[in-house]
């Protein structure tokens, strides 16, 4: 049985932990709001981009389209771009993404394909390094970045495109966590190369003038679209991470509260027991006289 002093120390330490988790939860809540705003602000651009891309892809016939969009025609080597958070303490957020990646890798390996991995974010790298160290071709850390800007995404996109142009892979898939709500983030695999083009809106088939040529515009647009997709994924990831962290920290705070309650009851009970014991000793001592 722990002594009264031990119990007191224990309660104090749990209280300190609770304070920390509470603070982390509030920080995550504030950051979540900002991240959500950023994700929302980025939406118009990617929507318009999709529309323009779908439109122009229709104008350029199959053979002239850049290979970045149509792929190499093979699917032997797969590049998986895995976007995770840089920090832990956010519940199952990172492991959810990594689990999806693992399933994917196993499936691809079973089919006899070659797999390469590019990780974005420290946690994904740490987790995947254990099993697939040989497959990781490159990694990007965004720990120093406070607010993710388009430039960060562009840098990653450039790496991917450089690898593609060097013939290092045929198919590229992006893994990230889609932000559904504060309590729900869905890990998602999204094809990057070949690009998945949306449907063209009916009635938008006006005859366009292209300056310079449609092919050249498309050649410029497709790499940028990859950057935009990555940017969107990164922003959703940040929002998701903060949402998951908020929930996790809320749970931790509540757990700590419960623990404190339990410990306090034990402490009170023990103290009472000791007082009773002392009283009995005094009384029986007095009676013996």
């Amino acid at each position: 049985m722990a002594s009264l002093k031990d119990l007191r120390n224990r309660i104090a330490s749990v209280k300190a932990t609770q304070k920390i988790t509470k603070a982390m939860q509030m920080v995550a809540a504030a950051k979540l709001r900002r991240a959500q705003e950023a994700a929302e602000a980025a939406r118009p651009y990617s929507e318009r981009m999709d529309a323009v891309l779908a439109n122009i892809a229709q104008a350029v016939s199959g053979n002239e389209a850049p290979t970045l969009m149509t792929g190499t025609g093979k699917d032997d080597v797969h590049l998986l771009v895995v976007a995770t958070a840089d920090r832990g303490l956010c519940g199952g957020f990172n492991s959810q993404i990594v689990r999806l990646v693992r399933e994917h890798v196993r499936k691809l390996l079973a089919e006899g394909k070659t797999v390469k991995i590019l990780t974005v974010g420290r946690k994904g790298y740490d987790m995947l390094r254990r099993d697939y160290a040989g497959m990781i071709v490159d990694r990007v850390e965004l720990k120093e970045v406070k607010q993710i800007g388009f430039a960060n995404a562009d840098e990653i996109a450039k790496k991917v495109i450089a690898l593609f142009e060097a013939g290092q892979f045929d198919v590229c898939t992006l893994f990230y966590s889609q932000f559904k709500s504060v309590i729900s983030q869905v890990p998602t695999a999204q094809p990057l190369i070949p690009a998945a083009t949306g449907d063209v809106e009916e009635g938008s088939n006006a005859i366009y003038d292209y300056e310079p040529s449609a092919e050249e515009i498309l050649g410029d647009l497709v790499p940028r679209n990859i950057a935009v997709q990555i940017f969107k994924a990164l922003l959703e990831n940040v929002a998701g991470e903060m949402g998951a962290k908020m929930t996790a920290m809320d749970n931790a705070t509540r757990n700590a509260g419960e623990m404190i309650d339990k410990l306090t009851i034990t402490y009170n009970r023990q103290r009472q027991a000791q007082i009773t014991k002392e009283l009995i000793e005094i009384i029986s001592g007095a009676e013996a006289l």
């Binding site: 602000a41 980025a42 118009p44 318009r48 388009f150 300056e211 935009v228 940017f231």
Partner: peptide, 24 residues
Amino acid sequence: FELVSPERLLISEEVEQVIIPGAE
């Protein structure tokens, strides 16, 4: 006229004219 950058929507309003630095 709408001017959008990846980070945000800068302008979305009725305009009379816009001068664009086209590639050509």
